[in-house]
Design a protein around this nucleic acid. Structure first.
Lengths: 144, 144
DNA sequence: TGTAATTAGTAACATTCGTAACTAAATCAG
DNA sequence: CTGATTTAGTTACGAATGTTACTAATTACA
């Protein structure tokens, strides 16, 4: 009796994630020395706009201490700036600075190119299906 | 200009993986105090049969140092045993012991139950599509 | 109200991790 | 063959991580 591994989603997901992530990481690491949490926080802010550490953590499914450290690292680079949230003075609303935007803009093209190369390994219909089903599962799990 | 995050696979994959893995982890952690690499090495051996650290690493997309440590931890528990590979004396062929099999068998039912609960959040057709497309991408990336 | 419980974020600590360097065995090139 | 290169696996070490405990602010509720 086994798990029937090829039908066992968690293992498959973990493996694919690791492999895909390994293709993308060199881009932001070699260009700016960013690590994965920093890159993901940068993406989250750029994507969802000014927001708090809490929401970044929820959006990117990263532990709050990971987010906290990544936010500090990005603030030290002056890529993001924070202003106390008047609605909840424990939080800061985090925003990309001009520098942060520039860095982000310089990153997305090579990153998207790498992603296109990987995704290009399967058909366009398969790509769409993959994203569609992931969306469904994420919605069902309250991630989005 | 942004990545159009909902179409950016690496981010989506990472998020979903983290979330799914968080649902499964309590099972093997609470039952036996296993960590993720140990659990994944155990699964890999149970699934593909007696094999070497190298192949476990390839199969589970885990770094060789991670595999090395997980293998040693499982050997210390006497869940796996190793015998020098006569074809390549740098490697050991790793096998589940009786104890390892028993532990594995006691784990798969609750693990599969958890997985079924998560996967049950989407339709059966969607589940199949998800696994099918992941397989395609993994094949194209030479993971399997 | 005011007190208790919860929540956002930080910090300290021990654990885990990946990089780089290493050993020993296998393979390659001439 | 034999020296050079590659490969499987381990180890040492610095960096990254999660757990736990903490502070300060917010919310729940009696």
């Amino acid at each position: 009796m086994t798990l029937k591994l090829d039908e066992f989603l968690p293992y498959r997901l973990s493996r694919l994630n690791e492999a895909v992530s390994n293709e993308i990481r060199p881009v932001y690491r070699d260009m700016y020395g960013l690590n994965r949490p920093e890159w993901r926080v940068l993406v989250a802010i750029a994507e969802i706009g000014p927001t708090t550490a809490k929401d970044i953590g929820k959006h990117s499914a990263q532990h709050k201490t990971k987010v906290s450290r990544a936010v500090h690292a990005l603030q030290k680079r002056r890529w993001i700036s924070g202003q106390v949230d008047p609605e909840d003075r424990r939080s800061e609303i985090l925003t990309l600075t001009k520098m942060g935007e520039q860095a982000y803009n310089s990153l997305i093209h090579p990153v998207l190119k790498e992603e296109a190369r990987v995704m290009g390994l399967i058909s366009s219909a398969d790509q769409k299906q993959l994203l569609r089903v992931i969306s469904k599962l994420e919605k069902a799990m309250n991630l989005i």
